[in-house]
Amino acid sequence: MNLTFPHRQTWLHRVNPAHKLMVSALLFVLVLFTHNLNVMILLTAAALLPLLFTGHPPLRLLLYASPFLLLFVSSASGMMMFGTGDTVWFRYGLIRISEESFYRGLHLGFRSLQVAAVGLTFALTTRPVALFYSLMQQLRLPARYAYSFLAAFNMLPLLAGEFLILRQSLQIRGRRPRGLKGYYERLRMYAIPLLAQCIRRAHRTAAAMEAKRFGSGSGVRTYYYRYSFTGADVWYAGYIVLSSVLAWQLGQIGPFTSAIDVR
């Protein structure tokens, strides 16, 4: 989601949203088939670099990226401590760190960094409205799906409002169940009315949309926003292809480690 803080529009914003989504999704497949730690580190660097061109100030970017550290540790540590491997470096009880498991853990850490960076770049430079209009125009997503998403987005603030009302009304009645059973009770008291209200609201909105012929797939639609491919798309595709090929080639020579295949 294009978070509503003010920021500059950059060339990354002008890349066609459907194009950006497809490329980002394919990058995950590329990562899935990358088993060389050197390549993985280079790919991660290539994914982190575009974050600097999202038009957000560096301090805010650091804030957004703060969960990355936890992500890296959490992805790496399990495999490092409990992975299989022959060259044992350290052993303590169940923990058994070997050379192989250490590098495999590192690989997983960089993998999750890469995935998170690609996702954050996408989220910071894409407006939902733009994405769904572009999906309808470039990838022929049926209008009833696209507009349903946009309608659902607009219900989020209403939902938040309803949550507050619910909380206040429960407070005023002094309902504050405690303990594990109370936790479940509280979950029930919030979840059921909120979901029921969601369904009612969605049903009413759908009726209104149906009346305006959003439901029928027939006929030619016109669009308020038009999206096509521009020079920014060429730059974006060029960067992704070039950086991936470069990472793949350089990684074979191995600038960082001796671990070639972490499997």
Binding site: Y145, S148, L194, L195, A202
Partner: peptide, 15 residues
């Protein structure tokens, strides 16, 4: 799936 089904499904999914 009708428009109603789609919208209800997506709204639930937003939650």
């Amino acid at each position: 799936l009708t428009l109603t089904d789609i919208l209800v499904t997506i709204v639930i999914s937003v939650v």
